[in-house]
Design a protein around this nucleic acid. Sequence first.
DNA 1: AAATAACAATGTTTTAAAGCACAAATTTAC
DNA 2: GTAAATTTGTGCTTTAAAACATTGTTATTT
Lengths: 233, 233
Amino acid sequence: MAKKTISTPRPIDKVMTVWDVLTPDERQFLRNNHTVHRFKKNELIHCEGDTPTHMMILESGKVKVFKEGVGSRAQIIRMLKPGEHFGYRAIITNQPHNTNVSAVEPSTIFMIKADIFISILKHNNAFCYRFLEELACDLGVSDARIVNLTQKHIRGRLAEALLTLKKNYGVEADGATISIYLAREDLANLSNMTTSNAIRTLSNFANEQIIAMDGRKLKIIDEEKLIRISKMG
Amino acid sequence: MAKKTISTPRPIDKVMTVWDVLTPDERQFLRNNHTVHRFKKNELIHCEGDTPTHMMILESGKVKVFKEGVGSRAQIIRMLKPGEHFGYRAIITNQPHNTNVSAVEPSTIFMIKADIFISILKHNNAFCYRFLEELACDLGVSDARIVNLTQKHIRGRLAEALLTLKKNYGVEADGATISIYLAREDLANLSNMTTSNAIRTLSNFANEQIIAMDGRKLKIIDEEKLIRISKMG
DNA sequence: AAATAACAATGTTTTAAAGCACAAATTTAC
DNA sequence: GTAAATTTGTGCTTTAAAACATTGTTATTT
């Protein structure tokens, strides 16, 4: 693998998708009042039970949001890509975090102190509305996931996970390889199954020419079929 | 059963929990611009795929929010009690409803037209913030449910459902009977299991003196044990 | 009051997925 | 560069829960 150069993070105005609704004063304030943090691969960013202190924005890299369930079996709730916010839900509800977040790749994160974030939410109606939209969207996704993960069979759940990853992270230059390389365990934790079953089912998909595998690189060959499998359950 | 008298609905200012953040103008406007609807037991209020037209507030009765999954197997997402809002998430995301809502008891519902609701959200920051809190809270619950429903075993899931129902609807005068009488099928759809398994597991709980049953009336006898079962998975 | 339908209870069979064990292949650490 | 550790791949066994079948019970309907 080519050695990764540590790139300088982009300025916050290029990263924050809600920048457009901020007032000039708020913009200047945020430029001066945010911090930049780098996390190594597999480093924990915050964990369940922690008191939330900052709203966070992923500048670069990839992170997973997950919960530890029965017997410390992990369930990945969602995967984030650059520009997405996290860690703020708990600030709004004024409760400890109910998820863990960790970097699946080296990641750079902008942090804004909780009180500053709340203050803008309470003073800038358009800003508040944007986050209302974001949470409304996330809630829809979460509710849909309840049904998908509980009712679909293994093949359907894994197919769905692969399609979601492709939609979320896109593909490499070849137009097929999903642009995120996850361990089989992470794929399993996304799809609510054991690692063995993720491996087994991936092998089956490969035998059926639905995907092609090269280590952690997964290529979707027959997307139609994958969609069908995902829909059937 | 005693014949139910159809009571006059309370005024909207006594039902809406966000009334305090409205301006006098908004209050007057809403008093004049909401409609009252009655739904019979088992009547569908809105369904998946419908375009959302109103934000709704449950004045009296009980409703269930559910999704139809694989093979039209239903999954109850949440149960609402008077004062709670629904049907507005889809308005905010500007998408069709992704859940069905139906009355599990005769229910009275206040409706506010979507454009009016959006207009208040966009002009009244405190109002917007209240709904932000509500969605943030719901999202936390939904994420937790993903783990509970996928990882816990049948007994754990049913125990959890019973505890949630008790917490949500409270108990009768006897201090133990849960104040909602659901069909076994609804209990099953809440807890992600088949009706047979809900029946079987309830019987087991009754044999173990954890609950007592009288038709649809469920009495929690040993709450400690139920909590333990729910936590163990 | 009889007929029908809906709901509840239980036993039996089947099956999807977990659990386990072990070997091979990679990755990471020193 | 080598050893250690982790990850991946397979086969086999076990098990939890679904599916099915049957019967009893309680509500509705006419």
